[in-house]
Design a protein around this nucleic acid. Structure first.
Length: 534
DNA sequence: GACTAGGAATCAG
DNA sequence: CTGATTCCTAGTC
């Protein structure tokens, strides 16, 4: 078939992999779950855990290796020679690692690495602008003269290689005790974690070979100083007490949250998130297509995911207020789409977009594949696509539970709890499922599968007639077939439309690989095939 | 009775 | 030409 335009429907392939395919190693909750110990929550022990994170068994049968690199940092006013890492810290670096034992070492603990510092260089190996923070620029200790920042990725999606220090070692057990006892802490520590599910790489630099070996990298920056300060302030309290001062709740570890939130690398490499909490249970390579297991899995989803979603909701709410747009992307008109794109672009410091390539309504934006995004914006498409995915997740009924209450979004957005019938009484130019400015372009050519996703994307207004059963798998249920058919007929100006005809159209999607019945067929339950379920 | 599955003809862009 | 609509028969729940 000749490739044609870049319209939403054309962006989706007509032939898709067989149903139910699951990658052999599913690391999907990795970014969301990673290194929970770094968050000083009340139910976590003091920073001791920074050095004692156990390595869980991996589904492929090989223990992962977590490489943690600590970069001592200092204010820019100091020169390298002024920095005293402390005898204990240096002592800890003394045991030069044998490079050869790193990839194959039976030790499955934390791999610590400290880079050598050039005396003439700035001591901030990661400048402020190398950090990804969409809502707040991290501005502590800027180091404009540093050339280190170019060596560090701006986000987990950046796969540029990290430089590796010749001095690397496995931390002795008493490291943290010495560290704390001497009351020495480097002000800032950058942590890089490389998780290798299968130790088939041969050198340190291979750790970023995501495509070839599915080795996963996560980095974060920790303000040890403030953590230690807080720890000292609360030193007389038990280890279970809150470490971070109350007023900093919601403000703490923003950077870590931002990094965790950025799932663009997952999208880029088709990596599913990996849930460490599930490691106690046997890994099932494939689950039957029922609606029970996903719910059980949902119960075990780690708190970090909820944290990220919660944070994203706040951001979504704030953004809606700032841009006066609906939280529901399917309701965006082309102007809203542009506003959102430009805002996101600015927040992430991405290159300016070419507006005429983004003249889309919300539903058409949603229908774009990541390839379409990167085609329109090669440098920022992946991030924009991922951000939109996160936005949708934050807005979705599953995650939001219908609690959406934008603070000052547009009147269109605040239509909230109106019923389907009420919606049908609304004038067509404000019908939520029909973008106001798409006359003659988008909506009249909308495909049924797109329309269904539109309905599914606005559970507040259409949840009573169609809803997701398993959003990740693309499984949904038509609760009111008559109403869905009526809405479809209204959209297509086919008054005689009924569910019999609509379902016939759905069945045409079977052989096109757009939709299918679930493996355990249920009445009125259908499933989007990959990648239409995205 | 409602839904499912699919063949076939037809329509619309 | 393609996707959707319309009509149909047959079968299941």
């Amino acid at each position: 078939m000749v490739s044609r335009s870049t319209t939403a429907e054309d962006s989706m392939p007509q032939i898709v992999p067989s149903a139910g395919f699951t990658p052999p190693c599913d690391y999907s909750n990795f970014a969301d779950s990673f290194d929970l110990s770094l968050l000083p929550e009340e139910d976590l022990p003091p920073p001791t855990t920074f050095y004692s994170t156990p390595s869980p068994p991996m589904p492929c049968g090989v223990k992962p290796k977590i490489s943690t690199t600590f970069y001592p940092n200092s204010p820019p006013t100091l020169k390298a020679n002024d920095i005293d890492l402390g005898p204990d810290f240096q002592e800890l670096l003394g045991s030069e690692p044998t490079k050869t034992n790193y990839p194959t070492s039976p030790i499955s603990g934390i791999y610590l690495e400290v880079p050598s510092i050039k005396s003439t260089d700035s001591l901030s190996p990661y400048s402020s602008h190398s950090l990804l923070s969409p809502n707040e620029q991290y501005s502590t200790f800027p180091s404009p003269t540093s050339d280190y920042h170019s060596l560090y990725p701006n986000s987990p999606s950046d796969t540029s290689s990290y430089p590796h220090s010749p001095s690397s070692f496995y931390a002795p057990d008493n490291y943290q005790q010495q560290y704390v006892k001497k009351e020495f802490f480097p002000p800032y520590v950058k942590e890089e974690n490389f998780l290798s599910p299968c130790s088939n790489y041969t050198s340190n630099r291979d750790v970023v070979d995501l495509l070839g070996t599915a080795i996963i990298k996560q980095e974060s920056t920790i303000d040890f100083d403030s953590i230690l300060q807080s720890f000292r302030l609360n030193g007389d309290k038990s280890a279970e007490t809150q470490i971070v001062p109350e007023k900093s709740k919601g403000e703490d570890h923003k950077l870590l949250r931002e990094v965790l939130r950025d799932t663009s690398f997952q999208k880029k490499y088709n990596i599913k998130t990996f849930d460490f909490n599930l490691m106690d249970n046997p890994i099932k390579m494939e689950e039957p297509d029922d609606i029970i297991d996903p719910e059980l899995s949902r119960e075990t989803i780690d708190p970090v995911l909820n944290l990220a979603i919660e944070q994203m909701r706040k951001d979504v709410s704030n953004t809606c207020a700032a841009l006066a747009i609906s939280p529901d992307p399917s309701q965006w008109n082309p102007a809203n789409v542009l506003s959102w794109l430009q805002w996101t672009t600015n927040q992430f410091g991405l290159p300016t977009l070419i507006p005429n390539q983004w003249e889309l309504s919300g539903p058409n934006l949603i229908a774009l594949s990541e390839e379409d995004f990167t085609r329109r914006a090669p440098q920022s498409g992946s991030i924009l696509y991922a951000q939109l995915e996160i936005w949708k997740a934050a807005f979705s009924e599953e995650e939001f539970g219908g609690k959406w209450m934008p603070e000052s979004a547009s009147s269109n957005a605040s239509s909230g709890e109106i019923s389907d019938d009420e919606e049908e009484e609304m004038p067509t130019d404000v019908e939520p499922s029909k973008p106001t400015t798409s006359r003659g372009t988008g909506s009249s050519h909308i495909h049924l599968w797109q329309f269904l996703k539109e309905l599914l994307a606005s559970p507040q207004t259409h949840g009573s007639c169609i809803r997701w059963i398993d959003r990740n798998k693309g499984i949904f249920k038509i609760e009111d077939s008559v109403k869905v058919a009526r809405l479809w007929g209204k959209r297509k100006n086919r008054p005689a439309m009924n569910y019999d005809k609509l379902s016939r159209s759905i069945r045409q999607y079977y052989k096109k690989g757009i939709m299918k019945k679930t493996e355990r067929s249920q009445r009125l339950v259908y499933q989007f095939c990959h990648p239409y379920n995205l």
